[in-house]
Design a protein around this nucleic acid. Structure first.
Lengths: 141, 141
DNA sequence: CTACATGCAAAGAATTTGCAAATCA
DNA sequence: TGATTTGCAAATTCTTTGCATGTAG
């Protein structure tokens, strides 16, 4: 349930390779969610070269280490973003431009625990994402 | 917030075909989430015959008409279930057996609205799913 | 040196689509 | 009859994998 020691926010697990550095740098420079394909395109556009398969592999690894947040588009595409806050949180995502805020939801956490207990469910996990139009995109309408 | 007239729970939109009836019947008889592929297999197992493509087409249509709930597995697979409650609700899903409870989350709705307002987001939508092990599966451990 | 990382191309899985044949209204 | 639906197979999209080669440590 709880992490014992202070986890490194950006602790690379494997070797320190060029492609790993590029992907991480790309994610760091960006504050909205991107798909693996988009990220790969961004790398190419930046004049760098990392194969798509490798981008997938690195994102997968970072996901397992909890270094990136992952969410799924309505049509099943995975979107990634570097965690700003290593702790548990949710997102308020703009469905137009991809911008996102990390939000806390203490109320919701409690609700989930209560509901789960009520039905006798254990080993609870939850997915909570809020989509909308950010102020800028709302105004652009 | 509330539906004015009593909406038909199972109002078919297009023609009343054999395959549509089979798919609907299959969904009605089942109270947990199933993927399109599983549903197709269930149909085959029941000695009926509806092509996989058609199962996909029917589910897609029902989804648009709001007759089925859709959620996504962690690896992006779409799971479907006939809506028991036509109103807005969320799910408490067993990640082992697929059983699911429909739960109300007034607290959460308010939280989402509040958060959205706080950041100036408009046209809010949200996705909230709670996964865990149902009592039966918890016991089976 | 040598195990782990990468690239490439092929494999996979879920879902969609084109088109001719079957079928409901 | 005549427009929808279906079935089949091929096409798409996203993602993963096998294997030979490259490279960090």
């Amino acid at each position: 349930m709880s992490e014992a020691s202070g986890a490194q926010a950006t602790a690379p697990k494997g070797r320190n390779t060029r492609q790993k550095r590029i992907v991480e740098q790309m994610l760091t420079g960006r504050e909205d969610f991107v798909s693996a394909q988009e990220l790969h395109q961004l790398i190419v556009d930046a004049g760098e070269s990392v194969s798509l398969a490798t981008v997938y592999r690195i994102l997968q690894a970072q996901q397992q280490d909890g270094l990136v947040d992952v969410l799924r588009t309505a049509d099943g595409e995975a979107l990634y973003r570097k965690c700003a806050d290593p702790g548990h949180h949710h997102h308020l995502v703009c469905r137009r431009c991809g911008a996102a805020e990390e939000v806390q939801a203490p109320t919701v956490e409690k609700w989930a625990d209560r509901i789960a207990a009520e039905y006798g469910y254990t080993e609870i996990e939850h997915t909570i994402e809020v989509f909308g139009l950010c102020p800028r995109c709302s105004a652009a309408d």
